[in-house]
Amino acid sequence: MGEPATKEVLSLDELEAVSGLRTGRKHILSILVENKPGVLTRIAGLFARRGFNIDTLAVGPTDDERLSRITLTLDGALHPIDQVTKQLHKLVNVLKIRDLEPRETLARELAMFKVSADGASRAEVMQLCEIFRGKVVDVTKRSLVIELTGTCEKVDAFEQLVRPFGLIEMARTGEIAIARGRSET
């Protein structure tokens, strides 16, 4: 019963509320779930009815076929993240949730851009593509399809740059993430 570090006298004025705070930054939640039907619906439904907005969502298999990993990003300025994770934990099919620490996390998404590129602008677009280490995966006389991976900020930046050339279409996967180093995500 002997816990150290609790003060003998405790004034009520010293007490501070411990949670329910908004952090104001983007959060990446990595959620390990059982690979069963309806799990994604349960998670999406939870977000919808509690009024939590999902910025991006990516689902895929893991090294264990019984499990799937859902990576979702949401804005900590809009939601108390601890309330989001506590509600998620109540779902029986959710096994583990990590609110990934940005500095200790590698996050990437895949994006594909269809850009109009005829004659003059083509070289310029391809140059931008090279700077961003993108890959041209389809070419026609009037357009290019570029494949790009990176953090969502990098993809955003590329989008800003190619938009003036005529962005015909864009598709993004949303970020997936993994913890740096040896430790498990």
């Binding site: 007490l15 509320a17 411990v18 949670s19 309330q83 506590k86 934990h89």
Partner: peptide, 22 residues
């Protein structure tokens, strides 16, 4: 008031009123 909040459901704690001692 300051709040002690005892509950078996962690999601209830600080849901509506921030707890000081959960």
């Amino acid at each position: 008031a300051k709040f002690i909040h005892i509950d078996i459901d962690p999601a209830e704690i600080s849901k509506n009123v921030p707890a000081h001692i959960p």
